[in-house]
């Protein structure tokens, strides 16, 4: 069974992964977000685009930031939003996941925003929802986090004019990072000249090069002359044990300090999907420094999510009219 995240006319029906999407569509998402981002500066921060629509945030994994920006985005589009936080232990079996889904669907939901700790969960849910329901992937296991990738692209576009001439370095735990996988696909689709990943072998997938990246194990050569630096979050449970000896040693080798930042171009921007572990992935002086765009990323998250939600639900109504 295969869900197709595009409608027959090439519009977004679901938003599950960046893989397979074409450059014009990614550009359209960013252009749309550009229009929405002005709304945040108005007195009344609302547009009636999704009035009467019901959106359910279905989070099988804890999240505060991503869930709140999705919720804000939906509310600014005038949709009704419900939040469901379901601990994964309660749905360790596929059938109860489907049961949960069909029960919520019975409430005439128009869209699910889904986060789950298993890779492929969003795809699975999209395969099983009713035809009139859209699914937005808010992160599935180690696979994809497409809205995060798009808000990162949006942020890069605001600072750097042309993707083609950029050198981008992604530092850290690529192996477990859904954010990095989606970023790499988005950067490649937008035609970025060179994508690098930097990290110890224990945090890089085997055959990383097949993802279309250049692999570096040290910051000096990996950061040399880059325009954009993306540091990835290191999950606490992975800092100690077989993957890494300690957070201290990680910071020593791969933590982004002012000193290491000098390897990059002087106008390089520094990004992080958040939440930050200060003194692990990044030094506070860099995170709060002039080259950091980390808080902008959060702001852009709302506009990007408004763009994706409105596009997916527009294609649904279009589809309904045809039928």
């Amino acid at each position: 069974m295969q869900s197709n995240q595009l409608t027959e006319s090439g519009q977004l029906r679901h938003f599950l992964t960046i893989e397979g999407l074409k450059r014009p569509l990614l550009t359209e998402i960013m252009d749309r977000a550009e229009q929405f981002s002005s709304i945040s500066h108005r007195q009344v921060k609302k547009v009636p685009l999704l009035r009467g629509k019901t959106i359910i945030n279905l989070f099988f994994e804890n999240s505060t930031r991503t869930r709140s920006t999705f919720e804000l985005a939906a509310k600014r589009l005038s949709a009704d939003v419900m939040n469901f936080n379901i601990s994964t232990s309660a749905t360790s079996k596929g059938e109860s996941l489907l049961d949960t889904l069909h029960n919520l669907e019975a409430m005439h939901t128009d869209m699910f925003v889904v986060r789950h700790d298993q890779s492929g969960a969003a795809e699975f849910i999209a395969q099983h929802v009713a035809p009139h329901v859209s699914v937005i992937n808010a992160g599935d296991g180690c696979h994809a986090h497409p809205t995060q990738a798009m808000l990162d692209m949006f942020t890069i576009r605001r600072h750097k004019q042309d993707f083609a001439n950029l050198r981008v370095a992604i530092i850290g735990d690529l192996l477990h990072s859904r954010v990095a996988r989606s970023q790499i696909q988005a950067l490649a689709t937008l035609g970025v000249g060179e994508i690098r990943v930097i990290g110890p072998q224990t945090l890089l997938p085997r055959d990383s090069h097949t993802l279309g990246v250049h692999v570096y194990h040290d910051m000096a050569s990996g950061l040399k002359d880059v325009d954009v630096i993306i540091t990835l979050r290191l999950q606490l449970e992975r800092m100690q044990g077989a993957l890494l000896p300690s957070a201290r040693e990680y910071f020593r080798c791969y933590g982004l300090t002012e000193e290491k930042l000098k390897y990059a171009k002087p106008d390089a921007i520094v990004m992080h999907p958040g939440p930050i572990n200060r003194g692990v992935e990044i030094a506070s002086s860099v995170a709060d420094g002039p080259q950091s765009v980390i808080l902008e990323q959060v702001t852009h998250g709302i506009a990007i999510r408004m763009a994706v939600m409105s596009m997916a639900l527009a294609s649904q109504s279009e589809q309904a009219e045809i039928e």
């Binding site: 893989e19 599935d140 085997r206 097949t210």
Partner: peptide, 15 residues
């Protein structure tokens, strides 16, 4: 299998 597909799909691989 730990290889190109596990890298792409974000599934843990068996080497």
């Amino acid at each position: 299998h730990e290889g190109t597909v596990s890298a792409r799909l974000g599934l843990s691989g068996i080497p």
